[in-house]
Simulated scan of single mutants.
Amino acid sequence: MATVKNVVPDRKAYIIPTSTNAGAFWYRKDWFKEAGLGPPKTWSEFFTTVDKLTEPEENRYGFTIRGGSGSIAQMLEVVYGQSGLTAFFDPTGKATLNDPRNVTALEKYAVLYKKNTPEGDLQNDYVKMVAQFDTAGNIAVMQHNLGSYQDHMKALGPDKVGSFSVPRSDSGTQSVLSSPVSGVAVFSAGKQKEAAFELAESFASKQADSYIAEKTGVIPANKDVAGEPWLSEAEHIAEAQRVMNDPETKVVQMPYHLPEFNEITKTWAEPLFQKVLLGRLGAKEFLDQFAARLTEAQAAYKKRIG
């Protein structure tokens, strides 16, 4: 509900939420078992783990970076997860993205490219990333979200694939990015509002919410679904809920309220992030420019809403 209300200026709920997603790191259980490793709990453990599982001569890589379309959200998840920062903007409206702790975090992340990942990752979108992890089977850890659950189960099955949440920062902070919330709304101009609202209620009901969440692998919004038998077998959702229900977890609200956010992250940032991976642009310079654009967009937003 907090996410639903935070994306609009008046902080009211305009949809009935039905589900949400969460960042997840999918990993090869069989590889981890062979190496005597467990899912990493901190970022230091994460970097050590992917390094141990990298064997280029065997065409095995500890990680796959999403360098192509859709790369920025995953990069931000790694950066804020490592730094432990808990907000995109400080109280004055200045973006925190270029905080020195974030710069260091991005530098550590970018170093993984070609060292612990395939070289082709520079152009990786979701389809290519999943193909490497599921079909080629040469990746130990893949970062995505709960939405890719069905792909992994069909290709590899629960005995070979598990998930762990965003690791804690080395200082102990659990920072996770907010995820978009799916839901249903009734348009005020509609001619059949009562019938539409009944339909919206049915989608948000325990029965429908449980069915949709089970088939898609995401977190159901209806709390009454919590006791459903299938949830006890859904390890990936149990892991995500463990983190989200922990009172010490800090949710970094993504600035979805900014109309410019999609253009900034997709059109502007993605090509420059590729330059960072190639070593042609420094992490600090990239994040300085990124933060400046977000700060400007936030100021314009505040001015518009008064």
Rank of each mutant, 00 (worst) to 15 (best):
A105D: 03
A195R: 13
R280V: 05
Y301S: 01
N124Y: 15
L177I: 07
N21W: 07
I65R: 00
N145Y: 04
D288S: 04
Y149R: 12
G190V: 08
G217N: 02
V218P: 00
D10F: 12
Y80G: 01
I219T: 03
D288V: 07
V130D: 08
I305T: 14
L294W: 12
E58G: 01
T267A: 15
V166W: 05
N262V: 14
G36Q: 08
T96Y: 04
S69I: 09
K154D: 11
N21S: 14
A189M: 11
D30A: 09
L231T: 00
G227S: 13
D246A: 07
R168P: 00
E57N: 11
S210D: 11
A238T: 14
G183E: 00
V50D: 01
D51A: 15
V127I: 11
V251F: 01
E198N: 15
M244Y: 13
F203P: 00
A140I: 05
R60N: 13
L53W: 01
S232D: 13
E270H: 06
V79C: 08
G93P: 05
V79M: 11
S232F: 14
P39N: 04
S83F: 02
R242T: 10
D170P: 07
R168M: 12
Y211H: 10
K266P: 00
N222S: 06
T86E: 10
E248H: 10
K191Y: 09
V186K: 03
T54N: 09
T265E: 11
N138C: 07
F187M: 12
L199S: 12
